[in-house]
Write a protein that binds this DNA or RNA. Structure first.
Lengths: 139, 139
DNA sequence: GTAACTGCAAAATATTTGCATCCTT
DNA sequence: AAGGATGCAAATATTTTGCAGTTAC
């Protein structure tokens, strides 16, 4: 795993540091989305809150992770499938948020549908968030 | 307009107060979405920040307005078309956020598409947010 | 009159910024 | 060695809570 983490960082011309390795590792292991707060918890009290903010911001800028809109003032972040190019996200999949356990998943296999919109409006990006109950929480 | 505002409040068994009338009025006039901050600005320094929080929360609970997920830690709120029943939103339309001017619109006429999802997952709600440039900002 | 709503003060959280120090290259 | 990254302190900003005074019904 270390190798993979290192690769991703190097490929994005970021220096390989402890915090970045750790945070990126979390995402690679998890294969879901994390909010800022989740990261602080999962990482133990190892590094500074500020470092988390800065690291997440850097990763988003580099296109290593992307943001998932939410309705509760806690932006979630998830790995981009194939490193999006810098500044150009192709976040063309659906996100699922479990209302029970709060887990956020990227449904890579569910494509975002075509949307027809009013004349005169141009579209840059479409976000689709599905809320429901995930497999694990289904009784 | 006063009458309409009053009606909505009464229909939801809320007492008709200055703040509620004013905030609800903003939404009725605007026909778009507002974030907490927008409301404070638009309303002048007339009422307390806390009142805005509480009023928005009340309106959401009653199904008078609904939240629109965003990626920037600033939840937007918009009127529900036909008062959703308490606790049961039928927020079945697409939202548009203009990347230029920041305006958020409810595209009532654009239906949320069917989404097929993995077996074992159930769906409660689907949010679709389209980002792009609105008519007014188009050059 | 009573229950509900508001405003103020203050606490609790969350986010941002500056700067000195440390680490990566 | 040089530039970038981190950690700490502190400044801001945001959200929540308690309570006393006020308003709607």
């Amino acid at each position: 795993m270390t190798t993979r983490v290192d690769d991703i960082l190097r490929r994005n011309s970021l220096s390989v540091t402890e915090s970045r390795k750790k945070i990126l590792g979390l995402f690679l292991n998890l294969h879901g989305a994390l909010a800022h707060g989740d990261i602080e918890k999962k990482a133990g009290e190892k590094f500074d809150r500020v470092t988390v903010y800065r690291t997440l911001q850097t990763f988003v800028e580099k296109g290593i992770i992307h943001t998932i809109p939410t309705t509760d003032n806690s932006i979630r972040y998830a790995l981009c499938k194939n490193n999006c190019s810098e500044g150009h996200h192709h976040d063309d999949h659906v996100h699922f948020i479990c209302l029970q356990c709060g887990a956020t998943l990227c449904l890579e296999d569910v494509a975002v549908p075509e949307i027809k919109i009013r004349k005169g409006f141009s579209i840059n990006e479409i976000e689709v968030v599905v809320k429901g109950i995930c497999l694990d929480c289904q009784q």
